[in-house]
Amino acid sequence: FSSEGEKDSASFAQETGEFVANLVGRDLAEKMNRTSVNAPRGVNEFVYADLAMAPSRLVAPPRVAAAPAALECRVTEVFRPKALDGSPTRAVIVAGEVVGVHIDDAFLTDGLFDITKAGNVARLGYMDYASVDEVFSMRRPRWDKD
Rank of each mutant, 00 (worst) to 15 (best):
residue 40 P to F: 15
residue 26 R to W: 15
residue 23 L to G: 00
residue 5 G to M: 07
residue 128 D to W: 12
residue 55 P to R: 13
residue 70 A to Q: 03
residue 144 D to A: 09
residue 79 F to G: 02
residue 61 P to C: 04
residue 40 P to E: 14
residue 59 V to G: 00
residue 71 L to Y: 08
residue 48 Y to D: 12
residue 20 V to L: 06
residue 64 V to S: 03
residue 74 R to C: 03
residue 40 P to Y: 15
residue 41 R to D: 12
residue 37 V to F: 14
residue 44 N to Q: 05
residue 29 A to R: 04
residue 71 L to S: 02
residue 42 G to Q: 07
residue 143 W to D: 08
residue 34 R to I: 10
residue 101 V to K: 05
residue 117 K to R: 04
residue 93 I to V: 05
residue 64 V to R: 02
residue 114 D to S: 09
residue 116 T to D: 07
residue 42 G to C: 05
residue 63 R to D: 04
residue 81 P to L: 11
residue 74 R to Y: 08
residue 96 G to I: 11
residue 65 A to C: 12
residue 123 R to A: 09
residue 100 G to L: 01
residue 120 N to Q: 11
residue 102 H to W: 10
residue 106 A to T: 12
residue 139 R to V: 09
residue 114 D to V: 10
residue 1 F to S: 04
residue 118 A to S: 04
residue 30 E to V: 14
residue 68 P to Y: 15
residue 136 F to E: 10
residue 1 F to E: 10
residue 40 P to R: 14
residue 20 V to Q: 04
residue 142 R to D: 01
residue 39 A to H: 01
residue 131 S to G: 07
residue 109 T to K: 09
residue 78 V to C: 03
residue 95 A to L: 15
residue 21 A to P: 02
residue 132 V to Y: 05
residue 8 D to R: 02
residue 78 V to N: 02
residue 43 V to P: 00
residue 53 M to F: 12
residue 122 A to P: 03
residue 82 K to L: 06
residue 49 A to K: 03
residue 51 L to E: 01
residue 30 E to K: 07
residue 77 E to V: 12
residue 62 P to V: 14
residue 83 A to V: 11
residue 119 G to F: 00
residue 66 A to S: 08
residue 79 F to V: 12
residue 79 F to S: 05
residue 97 E to V: 12
residue 103 I to M: 06
residue 50 D to C: 15
residue 85 D to S: 12
residue 19 F to T: 00
residue 84 L to C: 09
residue 40 P to A: 14
residue 133 D to C: 10
residue 139 R to S: 09
residue 77 E to F: 15
residue 102 H to L: 12
residue 118 A to N: 03
residue 129 Y to E: 06
residue 60 A to T: 07
residue 46 F to P: 00
residue 75 V to G: 02
residue 39 A to G: 02
residue 101 V to I: 10
residue 55 P to Q: 14
residue 19 F to L: 04
residue 70 A to T: 13
residue 94 V to K: 00
residue 107 F to M: 09
residue 59 V to H: 00
residue 132 V to C: 03
residue 52 A to G: 06
residue 140 R to G: 08
residue 129 Y to W: 14
residue 59 V to F: 03
residue 104 D to F: 15
residue 55 P to N: 14
residue 94 V to I: 12
residue 4 E to W: 15
residue 140 R to E: 04
residue 9 S to F: 14
residue 124 L to I: 13
residue 53 M to E: 06
residue 5 G to H: 10
residue 131 S to N: 05
residue 107 F to C: 03
residue 117 K to T: 03
residue 105 D to C: 13
residue 21 A to M: 15
residue 100 G to W: 00
residue 124 L to T: 09
residue 100 G to Q: 02
residue 137 S to K: 13
residue 113 F to S: 04
residue 25 G to Q: 04
residue 103 I to S: 00
residue 21 A to S: 13
residue 75 V to I: 07
residue 126 Y to H: 11
residue 93 I to H: 13
residue 50 D to W: 15
residue 33 N to H: 07
residue 119 G to S: 02
residue 57 R to L: 10
residue 21 A to T: 13
residue 10 A to K: 01
residue 84 L to W: 14
residue 77 E to D: 12
residue 6 E to S: 06
residue 65 A to L: 11
residue 118 A to G: 01
residue 36 S to L: 12
